[in-house]
């Protein structure tokens, strides 16, 4: 597993990128890391990869410290948000270079994936498009047969077919080898479809870290209209439940309620409600409501 404990990191001009951040990625899970721009996603991912030194805190992979640890890094595959290749190198040459550094390099897989992604091994990486360079980086990372895969916005910019293919490789390895995956992305709809755990960070701190299904179960969008409504009908009905957002559109109340569907229905059944819809929130909606609202709303969701 990947564990980050109380990570602090500041940059030169005093910018605090990480502020006591904690992350727990269980073995065999696909962990989606989301956050606003500048929240600290790339910083923590680079720290997990041993590129950056933390000011405080600890990062361990399978209970071993990562920083400057060759053996741990042998087991980690990494795709950066800005894939790099040596100038003038072809895919084959980068493959040979990577093979010289990773003990578990799988040449067969490398060749298979090149063919599957329809990439020419003799092509210079500098001549490829940005999307193709990301594919190449992904192929190289997967060919080292990692136990842990760390992806920093790998899917962004890829076409749907390639994205689907990429996720398939990831899921297959998770299923077959219990590979652990940590992926950051802004494509929340896609993350919702593949991740089983979610971590939402803001300003260098973890806001929510939970099993995705549990998260979606505990938050609902309620659309309700009351017959013979009085001024405080809605407030009385929602008494005892956490409402993080409320607006009225005509006679219909739209609210985000942090409560299970059963509890909400049970509460509202005592009222005459010609309109009552309970809708699960998408990850995107959870993200927006968690990070787009006032701070007390964030406190409420926790």
């Amino acid at each position: 597993m990947i564990r980050v404990q109380n990570a602090d990191k500041s940059y030169e001009k005093g910018t605090k990128a990480l502020d006591g951040l904690c992350i727990n990625v269980e073995r065999g899970s696909i962990y989606g890391l989301v956050g606003t721009n500048g929240a600290g996603k790339t910083t923590i991912i680079r720290s997990i990869m041993g590129i950056l030194m933390l000011d405080a805190g600890e990062i361990t992979v399978d209970d071993e410290t990562v920083y400057d640890n060759e053996q741990v890094k042998q087991r980690i595959g990494y795709v950066s948000d800005d894939p790099f290749a040596y100038r003038g190198y072809t895919l084959n040459e980068m493959g040979a270079y990577t093979a010289g550094l990773y003990e578990n390099w799988n040449e067969d897989r490398f060749r298979t994936m090149l063919a599957d992604y329809n990439l020419d091994g003799k092509a210079k990486l500098s001549s490829l498009s940005k999307g193709m360079r990301k594919q190449a980086a992904f192929i190289l990372a997967m060919s080292v047969m990692p136990e842990h895969l760390v992806l920093d916005e790998p899917i962004d910019g890829l076409d749907p077919l390639v994205r689907r293919k990429t996720w398939k490789y990831i899921i297959d390895d998770v299923a077959e080898r219990e590979m652990t995956v940590l992926v950051s992305s802004h494509n929340l709809r896609e993350m919702e479809g593949y991740c089983d755990h979610i971590g939402i960070i803001s300003e260098g701190r973890m806001v929510i870290e939970r099993d995705l299904e549990d998260l979606k179960t505990d938050v609902h969008k309620v659309q309700v209209a009351f017959l013979d409504e009085e001024e405080d009908t809605f407030a009385k009905a929602m008494e005892g439940m956490k409402v993080i957002h409320h607006e009225k559109r005509g006679s219909v109340h739209v609210a985000i309620v942090c409560e299970s569907a059963e509890k909400i229905q049970e509460t509202l059944q005592d009222y005459n409600t010609p309109v009552l819809d309970l809708l699960p929130l998408t990850l995107e909606e959870i993200f927006i409501y968690e990070l787009g609202g006032d701070s007390h709303e964030i406190d409420n969701i926790i």
């Binding site: 040596y86 010289g100 799988n106 897989r109």
Partner: peptide
């Protein structure tokens, strides 16, 4: 599948540097 290529990181870097420079 375990790679049959040598895992001597230092020599890999040295070879690569000569190749590039």
């Amino acid at each position: 599948m375990r790679s049959t290529t040598s895992s001597n990181e230092i020599m890999t870097i040295v070879r690569d540097n000569f190749k590039r420079f």
